[in-house]
């Protein structure tokens, strides 16, 4: 009876998990079709693309802030590096006309550049934690903005223009799915468990044989890599970037999405980014008052749900089979009698 129940439960999960690839393929074709068919206007498409970019941003920041439990406030800095790298590549380096062809390469290069800088930021995290590391990331964000403002050939404070509108719905879809997939894979690996254990108790983690330095480097590099990806997509959607696009307010936006959706949860990052982006648009008619209401809602949410909507929980679809099984595995050997354990 009991076993049967568990079995049917497992079967249910397996069945629904098989839906995921179907949904992904369907989603991709939908993203191809949407711009062609006249179902939704270009404004809605734009919002969808922003949601995708924001999902990448919040999921990647969640890796460091939610899963690893640090408090990075410089995520927009990595985004800026990705945005400028990708833009310079498509505008000045890759042959004009073929920019579209090289677009994925440019975005990936932006991610790689941001990831490389993430490596540098990982080093202070070996010794400092918590508030002091927060300051390091804050300072990093400010320094990136300052440096870009002082580089004349990318326009300095005036900004950089000339990008074609290469970010399209299918590209956003592909990059978002790819980012989520990779981040999810990382989270459900030994490195992911290392990341979580650093959040829970860094010293205990080290003493259980986890190489915490290696873990921190990986987390920071992956996190900043995807921030860079998001930056590249963002730049080729807006077709205009300046250092102020990536200031502390942008970082704050991403923070809000992460903590709104919930720390330590990919599903939460999706929800957080989606809800935040959509709400901002829905409330747009309210003018400036929308920015009065939004923070109030955030404060209320934090008071009533301090871990965010999905905090520390996850949609089953995102949990790999091995891990799901672990949660439901019926006890087979537990009855082995060992007198030492009696009592």
């Amino acid at each position: 009876m009991e076993l049967k129940k568990i079995h049917s439960h497992l079967a249910g999960i397996a069945a629904s998990r098989r839906m995921l690839p179907v949904l992904l393929v369907g989603g991709f074709f939908l993203s191809l079709a949407l711009p062609r068919l006249d179902w939704v206007d270009s404004y809605v498409q734009l919002i969808i693309m922003y949601i995708g970019i924001n999902v990448i941003l919040s999921a990647s920041l969640n890796l460091v802030n939610g899963y690893m439990g640090e408090f990075s406030v410089g995520h927009a800095g990595f985004m800026a590096i990705g945005a400028y790298t990708a833009s310079v590549l498509t505008v000045s380096v890759f042959p004009p006309g073929a920019a579209g062809l090289f677009f994925p390469l440019a975005v990936a290069a932006g991610g790689a550049a941001a990831g490389a800088v993430g490596l540098v930021v990982a080093f202070p995290s070996f010794k400092t934690r918590g508030d002091y590391l927060a300051i390091v990331t804050l300072a990093f964000g400010m320094i990136v903005k300052s440096i870009i403002e002082n580089i004349e050939w990318v326009g300095g404070p005036r900004g950089f223009i000339g990008m074609e509108k290469l970010t399209t719905l299918p590209w956003v879809f592909v990059w978002t799915v790819f980012s989520l997939w990779v981040i999810r894979n990382l989270v459900y690996s030994r490195y992911g468990r290392g990341i979580l254990s650093i959040r829970e108790d860094e010293i205990a983690s080290d003493l259980m044989g986890v190489n915490t330095r290696e873990i921190k480097v990986i987390a920071f590099v992956i996190s900043s890599f995807f921030a860079g990806i998001a930056g590249g997509l963002f730049a080729h959607l807006l077709q205009f970037i300046n250092p102020r696009c990536f200031d502390i307010l942008k970082s704050t936006d991403i923070l809000i999405m992460v903590y709104l959706g919930g720390i330590g949860s990919i599903g939460g990052s999706i929800l957080g980014a989606g809800i935040y982006t959509v709400l901002l648009e829905v409330l747009r008619p309210m003018g400036i008052w929308r920015m009065v209401i939004m923070p109030l809602m955030l404060v209320l949410l934090m008071i009533y749900r301090p871990y965010g909507i999905m905090g520390l929980r996850e949609f089953r679809w995102f949990v790999p089979g091995v891990d799901l099984e672990g949660l439901h595995r019926p006890d087979k050997k537990g009855k082995s009698k060992t007198d030492a354990l009696a009592g």
């Binding site: 408090f71 809000i256 903590y259 920015m291 923070p295 955030l298 404060v299 934090m302 008071i303 871990y307």
Partner: peptide
Amino acid sequence: PRVSAIITALGVGIFLEN
């Protein structure tokens, strides 16, 4: 958790500004 308080503070700040 401590971050919830920090995020709340960020929220209060944005509220005051706007």
